[in-house]
Computed example of a mutant assay.
Amino acid sequence: MEPSIFTKIVNGDIPAYKIAEDDRYLAFLDVFPTTKGHTLVIPKQQIDYIFDLNDELYLGLMAFAKKVAAAVEKAVPCLRVGVAVVGLEVPHAHIHLIPLNSMGDMNFANKQQFSKEEFEEVQKKIQAEL
């Protein structure tokens, strides 16, 4: 199996704005976000489809995402953090955590662009809440 872009991030071959990491999971900012603070949460093990994860890995991913979402919600002004699993863009299971102020913030066709400095600022703010 060809390493996914997310596996390349896990392996350190591609840089990322990492938010949180443990031995099994990684959270990092989406570089094509719908809103500021849009974070991806992945298992480090490359498995294409989220429902192919075994129960232990799936439940651990959800628990890890819950902790990260709480930090995102404190760090980024929003009404709540939305959760999406689409599963078509990258062949590596991942959860989108998206700060929401309107339903439009969940529209994946509306990608925002931020500077390196803006990404680093929100990265630090979220990390400070963990």
Rank of each mutant, 00 (worst) to 15 (best):
E2H: 04
S4Q: 11
S4V: 12
I5H: 07
F6K: 11
F6W: 04
T7G: 02
T7P: 10
V10G: 12
V10Y: 03
N11I: 06
N11M: 05
N11A: 15
D13G: 10
D13N: 14
I14Q: 11
A16Q: 05
A16M: 12
K18W: 04
I19H: 10
I19T: 07
A20Q: 08
A20L: 03
A20C: 11
E21I: 05
D22L: 09
D23M: 09
D23H: 00
R24I: 05
R24P: 07
Y25P: 02
L26M: 04
L26Y: 05
L26A: 02
A27P: 11
D30I: 11
V31A: 13
F32K: 15
T34R: 06
K36A: 11
G37S: 02
G37K: 10
H38N: 13
H38M: 10
H38T: 10
T39C: 12
V41Y: 05
K44W: 03
Q46F: 02
Q46C: 00
D48C: 00
Y49K: 04
Y49T: 11
F51K: 06
D52Y: 12
D52C: 10
L53H: 01
E56L: 00
L57S: 11
L59W: 08
G60R: 10
L61N: 08
L61K: 05
M62F: 01
A63N: 01
A63T: 05
V68G: 11
V72W: 01
V72G: 09
K74P: 00
K74V: 07
R80M: 12
R80H: 12
V81W: 02
V86D: 04
L88K: 06
E89A: 15
V90K: 13
P91D: 14
P91R: 12
H92L: 02
H92T: 03
H92M: 05
L97R: 06
I98M: 06
I98F: 03
L100F: 07
N101F: 02
N101I: 13
S102A: 11
M103R: 12
M103Q: 13
D105T: 07
F108T: 14
N110T: 10
N110Y: 06
K111S: 12
F114I: 04
K116A: 14
K116T: 14
E117Y: 00
F119D: 08
E121H: 07
Q123I: 03
K124Y: 09
K125S: 04
A128H: 06
